[in-house]
Design a protein around this nucleic acid. Structure first.
Lengths: 352, 352
DNA sequence: CTGAAAGCGCTTACAG
DNA sequence: CTGAAAGCGCTTACAG
């Protein structure tokens, strides 16, 4: 079934069929109806490839999830509330705005090229990248891409702006810096003076900025940062678990509280703490980041900091949709985060 | 940059450029090299829409996840190890075979039409459907679809075969029936005689067959099925939790073991049991289904039954890839499941 | 309001 | 080995 067949059947020209399909105004109701009936009867849908080639949008958004390093069991998208939540939400909002979405997981060096290719082949009208790291723009040759792109968790530098010359790149971030500082202050107000930190991946904005915020808050409160209480977690459950376990074993003096750069590592740390026959929050208080569902149903329920993924996902689709439709400025938005007090923080009495 | 530009720059015709791009054999090495250099230099990639229209495959597979009912917080893809695992794995294998994948979540009645549309518009070469229910084939008008499709968790009926006339539909299942029967026998051998069951959704093959298997095994072992110990779970964490709680409150005589139609509901039941100050497996033994990662890291670790998602996902892509390439028969495969004994089952001494 | 025609950027027989 | 030409199925000025 192609438009020509429909045209013949309806006794009109292909032009008219096209006008009906695209719902153009200058078609009388009766011929419109006549054509629509044939279309329905024969289940006709215009060939996307033909219509896109003829100048229409593809109505497809590319969604790229960058997960480098071992793509092992624990590193799967669906085991990652951060990626998973975005994927899910983005799919939802894109569908509401009638976009199809092409999803690719970038799990190795060689797959970066897929991103550029998808744009160059014109498969997608615009793209969203999650898991952006410091070197991502260069790796995907962003300078050759002229379509609109939204980056999550990334701060555009002046160099980036020169490199990509265009203003078609938007960023959507959360104010993790203030979030972590609040967390440190919260622990301080509860009497904690020995606060450790589980680090994420330094190459990502969130990994970097959350740690910086911790250091800054500690310094502002005149608290010592004990190097032994800084745990490398790499945003990986397994690594966070192992290194927390190690810290617990090696340190004579344990921290009374630990802030983790994300919920998953916080949950892993709690496991390690339990394993060492210590209690949360009895012996060590814990604060996570992301407000994931897993932290909400864990036992004990995790005190955490969280951005509003929904609003952020919606914003991404919104920007892209408007840019696809026509001229619309790129944006660099930064959403505030909330503090969710649950069951993993306890006041401690200060030893005078 | 289009093929004509490359042709001019390289001093050849568009035909030759096309031959180089498609890596056809009848091009001398030196002209091939000459053309390739220009292509690389100008970052040329053929327009997918033009090349597909001209007869090439789109190299795109559609992945449709059917999640009906409330699409609430607990029902999200990324909170669902079953959907999540497949999504993830399928994305992986498709990428290995160089396919792009178009992902759609079918969360309401009106979105079913999207599936048919994707095929009719020729956006995709083939499709995978997860979350198939009894009425799915009719809902998506499978009779109008001539491309290859793989269905997970669905048994083709003779009626289906007539309805769809073609033999382009494959199904990939796991032998849940034997899996559940083994679970019942296992509990029996540990001394359990009062075994409850948490049901999934009847409209899905897995929901239906797992319950049937439970009933059959109970009958074979001459065990009474206590209607009060049959819990409606609907494959929903919240519902399973609430109904387990209710059962625990209402039943004077509690089951000594419960088999759940999936891990997530099993985990929810364990929560409810703990909430009632009972122990797992001390007071009640639990067996789940799916062998999800959540059950592997939960406390206590969940005894469960599991298919091999990896092999099944790989098989799906494999079938589709071969069918896209040329003639290849559809298949109806059924993989055996494994029993994973972990920490939620206990022997009990029989009261004589 | 509507049709004939050009064009979108490829691929593929066809001819040489 | 290689180019000219037709064709894929649409959309969109253009002319009427």
């Amino acid at each position: 079934m192609k438009s020509e067949d429909i045209a013949k059947l309806a006794g009109v020209s292909r032009s008219t069929v096209s006008r009906v399909v695209n719902n153009y105004p200058n078609v009388p109701t009766d011929t419109k109806e006549k054509v629509m009936n044939i279309i329905k009867e024969y289940n006709y849908s215009p060939n996307t490839y033909a219509r896109t080639l003829a100048g229409k949008k593809s109505n497809t958004i590319g969604l790229f999830l960058i997960i480098e390093g071992d793509f092992g069991e624990n590193n799967r998208i669906y085991m990652n509330d951060f990626f998973g939540a975005y994927l899910d939400l983005l799919l939802d909002y894109a569908s509401i705005k009638d976009y199809y979405v092409l999803v690719s997981i970038i799990s190795s060096e060689s797959k970066y090229q897929k991103i550029q290719q998808a744009f160059l082949e014109k498969r997608i009208d615009a793209g969203v990248i999650i898991g952006t790291q410091l070197d991502t723009l260069k790796k995907i040759h962003m300078d050759t891409i002229t379509s609109s792109v939204v980056l999550f968790d990334y701060d555009l530098t002046d160099k980036d702006r020169v490199f990509t010359k265009d203003s078609h790149i938007s960023t959507i971030n959360s104010n993790d810096y203030e979030g972590i500082k609040d967390a440190v202050r919260h622990l301080y107000s509860k009497g904690h003076r020995s606060i450790g930190f589980i680090k994420g991946r330094e190459l990502s904005r969130s990994g970097h900025i959350r740690y910086e915020a911790y250091l800054s808050a500690m310094s502002e409160l005149d608290l010592d940062v004990n190097a032994d209480h800084i745990i490398e977690g790499e945003f990986d459950i397994g690594i966070a678990y192992a290194n927390t376990q190690k810290m617990l074993k090696d340190c004579e003096i344990k921290p009374t509280a630990i802030i983790s750069a994300n919920d998953f590592m916080a949950l892993a740390a709690i496991d390690a703490i339990h394993e060492a026959n210590l209690d949360v929050p009895g012996d060590i208080s814990i604060i996570g980041f992301d407000n994931t569902l897993h932290g909400q149903i864990s036992d004990p329920k995790l005190t955490t900091i969280g951005p509003d993924f929904k609003i952020m996902a919606q914003k991404a689709i919104d920007i892209l949709d408007k840019q696809i439709q026509g001229i619309y400025p790129s944006q660099e938005v930064n959403y505030e985060v909330n503090f969710y007090e649950r069951d993993t923080c306890q006041s401690i009495t200060l030893e005078e």
